[in-house]
Structure formats: C-alpha cells, structure tokens
Design a protein around this nucleic acid. Structure first.
Lengths: 150, 150
DNA sequence: CCAATGAGTCTCCTGAGGGAACTATCATCG
DNA sequence: CGATGATAGTTCCCTCAGGAGACTCATTGG
C-alpha cells in the first residue's frame, strides 16, 4: 500500500496503479505468468522478503488478479494462478517489455522473446486503434473528458 | 527509489519499473503528457509532497524521460516536457488506461477518452503482433529466452 | 526419529514518504 | 518603498512500510 491511496482519483491510470502499482507486484505477476506459482519459488526467484510477498499475494488475490488454488490437501498446499483479469494485466507487461527492450536492453539484446502462436514469428506488440486499425501512439491522439470524469 | 533496485535483473519489466516504477512517477508522466508542466501545478494537481516531487522530477530528467526547460529567464523559471523516450512511455499509460477502464471504471464509465487523430474516432488501443498484425495478448504467445538472458 | 519442504508469521531496524514551514528571486500593486 | 504573490525548491520532523532473517507448524520421506 502506498502512503497515498490513488483509488479515489477519477483516473484509470491511478486506479490501475492501485492494483499493481506497489513495488514487486508487476514482477510477481510476471513470474506467475511464466509458471512460477508457489510461494517459495516466488520468494527465491525474486529475492523479495517473505512478509511483503505474503502481503502482495493477498492483495492480488483480493483484487481478483490471482487465484489461490489448493493443489494438494495433505499436506495443504496452495499455488497462485492468473485469473482472466490478471491475464489481461499481462498485456500491460508485454508493453512494458517492449519499452524496456527499446530503451534499456543495451547491446546484449532483449532478455526474453515472444513467439506469436498465431503466426509463429518472434515479434513484439504494437498499439493500434480499435476503430481503424492504424498505429495509435500517445502522440496520435487527443484526450477528451469522458463520462466518468469527476 | 525502491528498497531493492530492480535494474540489475535481466528483465525488461524490472528495468522499466526502475525508471517509472516508483510511486507517483506514472501520474507525473500523465500530467506532463496532458499539459501540466510546472512544479507547482503538478504539486497541486497530484497532492504529492514537494520533496518527493522534486526527487521524482530529478530522476525522470536524469533518465531522459523529461526535459527541464527554461521558459523564462527573468525570473528564471522551468517547465518539464516529455522527450521522445518519455512520449513512448505514454503508450504504456494508454494500455494502463485501457485495463483500468475495463476493470475498474464501474458504471460511471471511463474518465477520459482518446480520439485517434488519424481516423477521428474515439477509440482505445489494441495490442497486435508486429509481424502478422493479428491480436497479440499475453495468452497468445510463447515466451523464449532472448540474447540478453543472463 | 530426524531432516526437509511448503507456506507463512513475527520482530527489529532503517529509510522513504507526508506535512508543513522556510528560502530565494523577481514582478506587481498601492 | 514595503507588502503581496507566484514559482520552484529545501529543510525538518515523524510515522510507517519494506528488508533481513529467525521462528512456526503440518506433513512426508529416509
């Protein structure tokens, strides 16, 4: 939890940040996405403190991003899996990867690649307009007040 | 600065978070993007503490996301504007908005709308494959190790 | 029986964020 | 000429969140 809650702001960015804006949350999401589903695996992979990991997982479950599922009853063991809502957040991670690859990867090149199953090519995501299908970057749009504006 | 630096990780998500992952940074970026460029305007609009705002702005300038530009020499006054690197980060914000609109906006509807200048329609961004142009979500790809993997 | 595994909980310490006052430079108004 | 105000920060103190690591508890394998 950050000091100041963003949730009250009439802004989808602030509200999204309220869900995954805390430190570690996006990396936890990334790990669960690539198949690191258990508490100890996550803790070891990230080097996060166990206390914070407990808090973050509980929050992400509460927000409907992750599902805490029992995979063994004796002894009781749980793993964390993405919900649909959480999987859509991973689209956001792919866009972050795209930016990080372009601006921070250096000459070593990108650490991971994505192969698009539909076409088989290694590719990255491009943002396009839902209406016309053309490229849609932040510099290609005008911002207007919407119905939910305060 | 978060407690643990993410920059050392071989992960474009972690490295991107290192640039804009701290609390407030994405909201500062949003404000600058929509034309809130001055220190006091930002401080009032966000309700952020002045100390933290100073730190965040300095960091974003250092990272090449914002440019600190003198717009008056007597008295000396500065404003913050996006660089190209920073503008590309705003693409990421649009994707966050998309997710926030879908999952957190509620019945009031989205607080802001984007009009795509190329086609004139109010629209949102869709992620597509850079190779084939088809929809490319996190569930549509396989993750492979890249050249920059550790 | 002992050690290991999985999944947390607890405690202590440090340092980042919040709040608010203080500073400095110039412009303008009465 | 002094008061006021805008702009852009600094500085101070205090609280609380994060880091590190030890401890817990149930169960299982050797």
């Amino acid at each position: 939890m950050q000091r100041t809650q963003f949730a009250g702001m009439a802004c989808s960015i602030a509200r999204t940040l309220d869900v995954i804006g805390e430190p570690w949350s996006p990396l936890i999401l990334r790990d669960v996405y690539v198949g690191i589903n258990r508490f100890d695996q996550l803790q070891r992979d990230l080097g996060i403190s166990r206390k914070v990991l407990t808090q973050r997982l509980a929050w992400l479950v509460e927000q409907g991003i992750l599902d805490r599922r029992e995979y063994s009853s004796r002894p009781v063991r749980h793993e964390y899996v993405l919900t649909g809502k959480g999987a859509e957040l991973c689209d956001l991670l792919m866009v972050m990867v795209r930016w990080g690859d372009r601006w921070t990867a250096g000459e070593a090149g990108p650490p991971v690649l994505y192969r698009h199953r539909a076409c088989g090519n290694v590719a990255h995501v491009e943002p396009v307009c839902s209406a016309c299908g053309g490229p849609m970057h932040a510099t290609d749009v005008d911002v207007l007040p919407g119905p939910g504006a305060r």
